[in-house]
C-alpha cells in the first residue's frame, strides 16, 4: 500500500505517532507558510496547530490518486490560512505590497516591522525580477489573497490572461529559487 496513504489512515485513526510523523515531514513548510501569511508570529503558531487538527479531521479523505501528500497538506494549509485571514480581516494588503511595501503603513506594531520585512524581503526581491503583470498578479493573488476573478475585474484583464501570468510567474520564481540553491 502507498506509504502516504498508510500514514494518513493512521492519522485518521487517531494514532499520535502518525500525527508526529506528519508534523516532522510538513511542520516546517506549514509554519513558514503561516509565518508569511499571518499577521503575527503568534497567529502563525496558532494556525499551524489548527492546520494539523484539520489534517487529522480530513485524513480519511486523502486520495493518493488525486494528489501527492505534500500537495494535499499544503493546499489544505493554504486554504485554512486564507479562510482565517478573511474571517479576521487581518490579511496583508495587496495594495501596500504592490507599491513600496511599508509595514508601518499597514498599521503594524514597531516590534513586528522587522518580522514583516523578513517575511517578504526575499520573495519581494525575486518578484521584482518578474515582468510587471506577473509582479502585480503574484503580489495580489499569492501574497494578498485576492481571487483571480477579483484581480481580473480590478485590472480589466481577461481571467485567462491572469491565470497564465500567475502560472508563468510561479514557475519562474520556483526556477529562480532552485538556481539559487544550486549555486549555493
Amino acid at each position: 500500500m502507498d506509504e502516504d496513504l498508510l500514514l494518513m489512515q493512521r492519522v485518521a485513526a487517531g494514532d499520535e505517532l502518525a500525527v508526529g510523523d506528519l508534523y516532522d515531514r510538513f511542520g516546517s513548510l506549514v509554519y513558514r507558510m503561516a509565518y508569511q501569511t499571518m499577521p503575527t508570529r503568534s497567529d502563525a503558531e496558532d494556525v499551524v496547530q489548527e492546520v494539523f487538527v484539520r489534517l487529522w479531521r480530513t485524513a480519511d479523505r486523502y486520495d493518493p490518486k488525486r494528489a501527492a501528500l505534500v500537495t494535499w497538506v499544503m493546499l489544505l494549509a493554504r486554504r485554512h490560512m486564507v479562510d482565517r485571514l478573511r474571517r479576521v480581516q487581518a490579511r496583508v494588503r495587496a495594495g501596500a505590497l504592490e507599491e513600496s511595501w511599508s509595514p508601518a503603513a499597514a498599521g503594524e506594531a514597531p516590534h513586528e516591522n522587522l518580522e514583516t520585512s523578513e517575511r517578504f524581503e526575499s520573495v519581494l526581491e525575486k518578484i521584482k525580477q518578474l515582468p510587471e503583470l506577473q509582479q502585480i498578479v503574484v503580489k495580489r493573488a499569492y501574497l494578498g489573497g485576492q481571487t483571480l476573478k477579483q484581480i481580473g475585474t480590478e485590472l480589466g484583464i481577461p481571467l485567462g490572461t491572469i491565470k497564465s501570468a500567475l502560472s508563468r510567474a510561479l514557475v519562474r520564481l520556483r526556477e529562480s529559487a532552485s538556481a539559487e540553491e544550486s549555486a549555493a
Binding site: 505534500v70 500537495t71 499544503m74 529562480s176
Partner: peptide, 15 residues
C-alpha cells in the same frame, strides 16, 4: 507536488 514543496516563495525562518 513540486510547487507545494517548493520553498521559493517561503521565508527562511526556523520553526
Amino acid at each position: 507536488a513540486r510547487f507545494a514543496a517548493s520553498e521559493a516563495m517561503l521565508p527562511k525562518v526556523d520553526v
